[in-house]
């Protein structure tokens, strides 16, 4: 029995270390409300994060897997979403004349990208492609902590590091020289709900928003998980009792 437990523990420990981690300076760690088996997203933070994305990040970064209608998760109703989507211009077509045309966005549209394609994005940003942010917290080993650290990691470069033209020093980026200029500044955004918009606040809000963007199903997933595991544990207990009962029969016959 002990050996079994030992093997299970070794396996579990092993399974959590399988990914080769880059030797990066340990970033900031925040106790995000959405972590853990009972985690949920903070809707106010999500709404502020949407504002940061829209006003700061969307000039270079697309969010193509999110549709405007998905914003109902943030607590917006149909009218608010419709009004929001109409702020953006979508290229549609071809029309009956064979031409592409522009029209205001609709809830069913996906977030409009700042550039028509990857090459245009690279060309406008010195050859570096500003990645789409829909999956960014799943696409980076450190997840939300990494994203948050990066956004607040624009510090004064130490003398030992030469900052090349077209790059910027970031404490938490691998190699320390990142092509993205500092995106967040104190009071860069005026929050609709009046929260003070310092760098840490904006970084935390946009990180919460992008965590949701990468995993909008998270709350349902965890709820379902608790139900499924509870069901299976009950079933395990019952079937173990059944097994003991059936096998007791056998031991009796042996005696």
């Amino acid at each position: 029995m002990i050996r079994t437990v030992f093997i299970l523990v070794v396996f579990l420990l092993f399974s959590f270390s399988v990914n080769a981690s880059d030797p990066l300076e340990k970033g900031e760690h925040k106790s995000w409300g959405f972590l853990g088996p009972f985690g949920t997203y903070n809707k106010s933070s999500l709404q502020r994060g949407l504002q940061v994305y829209t006003e700061v990040c969307s000039s270079c970064h697309s969010l193509k897997y999110i549709a405007y209608r998905n914003l109902s998760d943030l607590g917006y109703n149909k009218e608010e979403i419709k009004a929001f989507s109409e702020n953006f211009t979508v290229t549609d077509g071809p029309n009956d004349d064979g031409e592409m045309f522009e029209r205001p966005g609709r809830p069913s549209d996906h977030f409009v990208s700042p550039y028509p394609n990857v090459n245009a994005a690279k060309a406008a940003n010195g050859g570096a492609y500003p990645p789409d942010l829909s999956l960014i917290t799943k696409a980076r080993g450190g997840g939300a902590d990494y994203l948050y650290s990066l956004l607040i990691g624009y510090k004064e470069a130490p003398d030992s590091i030469k900052v090349l033209e077209g790059t910027y020093y970031n404490k938490y980026y691998n190699g320390n020289l990142i092509a993205m200029p500092q995106p967040l500044y104190d009071d860069g955004v005026v929050y609709a709900d009046g929260t003070k918009a310092n760098i840490e606040q904006m970084a935390a809000d946009v990180t919460e928003f992008l965590s949701w963007a990468a995993e909008p199903e998270m709350e349902e997933r965890k709820r379902t998980g608790i139900a499924a595991i509870a069901f299976l544990l009950i079933m395990a207990v019952l079937s173990f009792m059944a097994k003991q009962q059936i096998w007791a029969n056998l031991k009796k016959k042996q005696a």
Binding site: L232, M235, L238, S239, M241, A242, I246
Partner: peptide
């Protein structure tokens, strides 16, 4: 009959779980 009940209960949970899945 207690054994039968537990056995039936276990397998029934299995059937319900499979349906849900």
């Amino acid at each position: 009959s207690r054994r039968d009940f537990i056995v039936i209960a276990s397998y029934s949970m299995g059937a319900v779980g499979t349906g849900a899945a």
